[in-house]
Simulated assay, not measured.
Amino acid sequence: MNTPELRQLKMAWIAAKEAGDRETQLRLIQDHPAHQDELIEFIAGYQAIGGAEEVDQHAELLPVTQRALESALKQVFKPQSSFATLSELRKSLKLSKMDTAQGLRLSVDVWNKFENGAIELVSLSRLQLERLSQFFHVSAEQFGTLLNGSQPAISMNRRQTREAASNAEQGPQKQSFSEAIARSAMSKEDQQFWLK
Results as ranks from 00 to 15, higher is better:
D99T: 08
K113M: 10
F114I: 07
E141H: 07
T85H: 06
A165V: 09
V122D: 04
L89T: 01
L89R: 00
K174G: 07
G171A: 04
R90M: 13
N116M: 07
L121F: 02
N112G: 14
Q175N: 04
K174Q: 15
S139N: 08
L124M: 03
R158L: 15
E169C: 05
I119N: 00
L124A: 01
S123H: 01
T161F: 12
A168K: 04
H137L: 14
P172R: 02
K174A: 12
K78P: 09
E163R: 11
K78H: 10
L86C: 08
I154D: 01
L86N: 02
R158S: 14
K94S: 14
E130Q: 05
Q173Y: 10
Q75A: 11
A164M: 15
F136D: 02
A118G: 05
L93C: 11
M98S: 10
K78Q: 14
A164F: 15
L146Q: 02
L121M: 05
G103P: 13
E115P: 06
S176T: 08
Q173N: 09
G117T: 02
Q128H: 00
Q170S: 04
G103C: 13
W111H: 03
L146V: 08
A168Y: 02
L86H: 01
W111E: 05
S107R: 07
V138E: 01
Q102W: 12
V122Q: 03
S166C: 13
G171I: 02
S82W: 08
E115T: 04
Q80P: 08
F83D: 10
H137C: 13
F114L: 09
N116R: 05
E130V: 06
F114E: 03
T100Q: 07
M156N: 08
Q75H: 09
S176F: 02
H137T: 12
V108S: 06
R90H: 11
Q170K: 05
E163I: 15
S92I: 14
F177A: 02
E163Y: 13
E115G: 05
T145F: 04
W111Q: 05
R131C: 10
S87Y: 08
I154E: 02
R105L: 14
S96Q: 09
K78F: 08
N157G: 04
S125V: 03
S133R: 03
G149T: 04
N167L: 15
D99E: 15
Q80G: 10
G117M: 03
H137D: 15
Q102P: 11
S155V: 13
L86P: 04
Q160I: 12
R158P: 13
E130F: 02
R90P: 12
S150L: 08
L121A: 06
L93M: 14
W111L: 13
R90K: 12
S150N: 05
G144F: 01
T161E: 13
V122G: 00
S96D: 10
G144A: 06
L124Q: 00
L95K: 06
M98N: 09
R131D: 05
S150M: 08
Q175M: 11
S92H: 12
R105D: 11
S81F: 10
F143G: 03
R159Y: 12
K97E: 09
L146C: 10
A165Q: 11
S87E: 14
S96M: 11
Q173G: 10
A118Y: 00
